[in-house]
Computed example of a mutant assay.
Amino acid sequence: MRIRSVPTLLALTALMALAGCASQPAQMPRTVAHVDLDRYMGTWHVIANIPNFLEKGKVATADEYHRRKDGDIAITYHFRKGFDRAPDAWHGKGWLPDPKDAAHWKVRIIWPFVSDYLILALDPQYRYVMVGVPDRDLLWIMARGTTMPDDVYRQYVEQARAQGFPVDQLKRVPQTAAQVGRPGYQ
């Protein structure tokens, strides 16, 4: 198909944008009311997620966040492709589209893909967090350590269910070799 004019190109772009909007959820998931961004920085181990093609099969995963001098957030995604394999990492960045709302980020781990990062639940002591995306097809439950109490995990799963996330797709991420192959784990 040849585009013969700028107006035609603009019209096609507008139609594609509208088609993309049609697939967006009617209402964004609710985020937490307040996040102390400096306190949030550091390492968060992935306890469970809705597996996606980039993370599937990875073990000992963790996200590490640090404030950059320019105000953005440096992101390092740590992982292994097996406990017998060397640790690896991907590097990306995050930023706040609205500096007054630290519960909603934009993140880019693999250029040029940008995604929303919504903090849906956060423990008052910043020990546990649940993060999702607007269309509800991705969800992460994370902790400062490599474990999370079962009652906290169940509470976060129920909060996600109440917000319309497909929690039946959640899988725990092995943080130790002993967890590989256990029921409910990737």
Rank of each mutant, 00 (worst) to 15 (best):
residue 163 Q to P: 08
residue 161 R to F: 14
residue 77 Y to R: 01
residue 115 S to Y: 15
residue 134 P to T: 11
residue 89 A to K: 13
residue 88 D to R: 07
residue 161 R to D: 10
residue 35 V to R: 06
residue 90 W to M: 11
residue 43 T to I: 03
residue 142 M to V: 00
residue 13 T to L: 14
residue 82 G to N: 01
residue 80 R to S: 07
residue 70 D to W: 03
residue 81 K to C: 09
residue 128 Y to E: 06
residue 155 Q to H: 14
residue 34 H to R: 09
residue 20 G to Y: 09
residue 76 T to Q: 15
residue 49 N to D: 13
residue 81 K to G: 13
residue 43 T to G: 03
residue 65 Y to N: 11
residue 13 T to G: 12
residue 79 F to H: 02
residue 9 L to H: 04
residue 150 D to P: 13
residue 30 R to Q: 14
residue 133 V to A: 04
residue 58 K to E: 12
residue 115 S to V: 13
residue 21 C to R: 04
residue 117 Y to T: 06
residue 124 P to R: 02
residue 33 A to M: 08
residue 166 P to C: 06
residue 111 W to F: 15
residue 138 L to V: 07
residue 94 G to P: 09
residue 98 D to W: 02
residue 16 M to V: 08
residue 83 F to K: 08
residue 164 G to N: 07
residue 171 K to A: 07
residue 130 M to W: 10
residue 69 K to D: 15
residue 50 I to F: 03
residue 183 P to Q: 02
residue 109 I to K: 04
residue 157 V to F: 05
residue 173 V to I: 14
residue 18 L to V: 11
residue 146 T to S: 15
residue 167 V to F: 01
residue 118 L to Q: 10
residue 89 A to G: 01
residue 127 R to P: 09
residue 39 R to Y: 00
residue 185 Y to I: 01
residue 124 P to A: 06
residue 68 R to H: 08
residue 119 I to F: 04
residue 46 V to S: 10
residue 175 Q to S: 05
residue 20 G to A: 06
residue 42 G to M: 06
residue 30 R to A: 14
residue 127 R to F: 12
residue 184 G to V: 06
residue 134 P to I: 07
residue 144 R to D: 06
residue 101 D to P: 11
residue 87 P to N: 07
residue 182 R to H: 14
residue 57 G to E: 06
residue 82 G to T: 03
residue 108 R to G: 15
residue 2 R to Y: 05
residue 143 A to F: 06
residue 68 R to V: 12
residue 148 M to P: 06
residue 89 A to E: 14
residue 154 R to V: 11
residue 46 V to W: 00
residue 177 A to H: 04
residue 168 D to C: 10
residue 137 D to T: 11
residue 176 T to G: 07
residue 66 H to F: 14
residue 82 G to V: 05
residue 85 R to E: 15
residue 184 G to H: 04
residue 27 Q to Y: 04
residue 56 K to I: 08
residue 133 V to C: 07
residue 15 L to T: 04
residue 9 L to I: 09
residue 93 K to T: 15
